Computed example of a mutant assay.
Amino acid sequence: MDKNVLGTNIIAQIGLLVHDIEATSRAYADFFGMEKPQWFWTDAVDKAQTQYKGEITEGRCKLAFFNMGSLQLELIEPDDKPSVWRECLDRDGEGFHHIAFIIEGMQEKISMMERGGMPLLQKGEYTGGRYAYLDTIPQLKVMLELLENDKK
């Protein structure tokens, strides 16, 4: 595999899976003396075009974001539909889910990573960009999320 496949080594985000986003958001806000962010639902499949393991899925989640200096903490509470979030929460319980990197050239990066034995698990769109989760656990011992924001 090429050197520096992502074109960056700056971690932009850490994602945590939770059963109760409201309670967990409150706990983080209280612990760090910060304002509790409002959580929101990810877009429905018609807008998000969510695919999980190559199939369209209606899986959604609630998200809350804490900006922690140069890093963002993302809390994720999935619904009960098929998704990488639901699978991991059911299998592993609450806690660490992924680290994310902001990249350019999403499709190219996914292709390179898949050729390197890191398959795409889930992808979708969000207002202003797109995301992809790749199974990098065998090689890197952590799941990676790629975030590509639309050019302004």
Rank of each mutant, 00 (worst) to 15 (best):
residue 28 Y to M: 05
residue 26 R to V: 00
residue 65 F to M: 07
residue 45 V to G: 01
residue 97 H to M: 11
residue 94 E to Y: 06
residue 56 I to W: 12
residue 33 G to T: 09
residue 32 F to R: 08
residue 88 C to A: 11
residue 71 L to A: 02
residue 56 I to R: 12
residue 40 F to A: 00
residue 94 E to V: 14
residue 59 G to N: 09
residue 97 H to Y: 15
residue 86 R to E: 13
residue 51 Q to D: 02
residue 68 M to D: 00
residue 54 G to M: 12
residue 85 W to R: 00
residue 62 K to Q: 11
residue 51 Q to N: 06
residue 73 L to Y: 12
residue 41 W to E: 08
residue 43 D to V: 03
residue 89 L to D: 09
residue 71 L to S: 02
residue 59 G to D: 08
residue 43 D to R: 05
residue 64 A to I: 07
residue 25 S to L: 02
residue 91 R to W: 13
residue 99 I to N: 02
residue 51 Q to C: 09
residue 97 H to A: 08
residue 50 T to W: 04
residue 24 T to D: 03
residue 65 F to D: 00
residue 103 I to Q: 01
residue 58 E to M: 11
residue 58 E to Q: 14
residue 33 G to S: 09
residue 68 M to N: 05
residue 69 G to N: 09
residue 25 S to V: 01
residue 91 R to I: 14
residue 48 A to V: 05
residue 24 T to G: 00
residue 67 N to E: 09
residue 49 Q to L: 14
residue 80 D to F: 11
residue 49 Q to K: 15
residue 29 A to V: 08
residue 50 T to D: 03
residue 101 F to W: 10
residue 63 L to T: 03
residue 65 F to L: 14
residue 36 K to Q: 15
residue 63 L to A: 04
residue 79 D to E: 05
residue 98 H to A: 07
residue 32 F to W: 15
residue 28 Y to V: 11
residue 29 A to M: 07
residue 72 Q to K: 14
residue 40 F to G: 00
residue 97 H to I: 13
residue 63 L to H: 01
residue 42 T to E: 12
residue 72 Q to W: 04
residue 94 E to W: 06
residue 92 D to F: 14
residue 36 K to E: 13
residue 66 F to V: 10
residue 86 R to V: 15
residue 65 F to P: 01
residue 81 K to Y: 15
residue 75 L to S: 03
residue 78 P to W: 05
residue 61 C to W: 03
residue 24 T to F: 04
residue 38 Q to K: 12
residue 91 R to L: 15
residue 48 A to P: 05
residue 82 P to E: 07
residue 49 Q to W: 06
residue 57 T to I: 07
residue 93 G to P: 03
residue 24 T to C: 04
